[in-house]
C-alpha cells in the first residue's frame, strides 16, 4: 500500500455519500482521477486488504441478532472444534484468544430465534458450552483506524 492507498482507506472509513456520483466527491478530496480511485479500490479488494466495500448494517434495527460467543475448548480438540463452528453459515468470524475461554466467534442471524438454535446446535456438536454475550449498549466511536 502506498500513501494514496492509505488516504483512500482513511477517507472511505468516514463513509461514502449517497449521491449519483459518490466516488467523484471522494476522488476530488483525494486529488486523484475517479478512474484511479476505482481501480485502486478494486486492487485493494482483490489483494484482500479490504474485505468489503458497502453498507454497514445495524443488525438489531433490522430485526436480526448479532451475538459475541465464547467457548472453552480443550486445546487438543481446538482445530476440530473450530472446523465444526466455522461450518455454520451464521458464524461471521472466529478468533482464537489467550484465555480459558479460548474461542470467540460472532453469530449473525436474521431472527433472534435462529441464534438460539445455532448455539444449541454448536453445543450439541462440539460438547462445549457456548457463553453468548449479545451487546447491551454500543458506545459511539469517533475516529477510525488510521492506516
Amino acid at each position: 500500500m502506498d500513501s494514496v492507498d492509505c488516504n483512500i482507506v482513511n477517507q472511505l472509513q468516514e463513509g461514502l455519500p449517497v449521491c449519483a456520483r459518490p466516488f467523484d466527491d471522494v476522488a476530488a478530496q483525494l486529488d486523484i482521477p475517479v478512474d484511479e480511485l476505482l481501480a485502486r479500490l478494486q486492487r485493494l479488494l482483490d489483494d484482500k486488504l479490504l474485505s468489503r466495500f458497502g453498507p454497514m448494517y445495524n443488525a438489531e434495527s433490522m430485526g436480526g441478532a448479532l451475538s459475541l460467543c465464547a467457548m472453552q475448548v480443550p486445546p487438543d480438540r481446538f482445530d476440530a472444534v473450530a472446523a465444526q463452528v466455522n461450518a455454520f453459515a451464521e458464524v461471521a468470524h472466529n478468533y482464537e484468544r489467550d484465555h480459558l475461554l479460548n474461542m470467540w466467534f460472532v453469530i449473525a442471524t436474521e431472527h433472534p430465534a435462529q441464534a438460539v438454535a445455532v448455539i444449541s446446535d454448536i453445543e450439541q456438536q462440539t460438547g462445549c458450552r457456548v457463553y453468548d454475550m449479545p451487546k447491551q449498549e454500543e458506545f459511539f466511536i469517533g475516529l477510525k483506524l488510521a492506516v
Binding site: Q13, A20, F53, M56, Y57, L145
Partner: peptide, 27 residues
C-alpha cells in the same frame, strides 16, 4: 437513493464504507 437515505436516517444502515482487514494492513 431516497430509500437508502431513509434506511440510514432510521439507523438500519450505519454508513456506506470500507471494512478494513486489520491484519493485512499491518495491525
Amino acid at each position: 437513493m431516497a430509500r437508502l437515505r431513509e434506511l440510514q436516517s432510521d439507523g438500519l444502515i450505519k454508513r456506506m464504507g470500507v471494512v478494513v482487514k486489520h491484519r493485512a494492513l499491518g495491525y
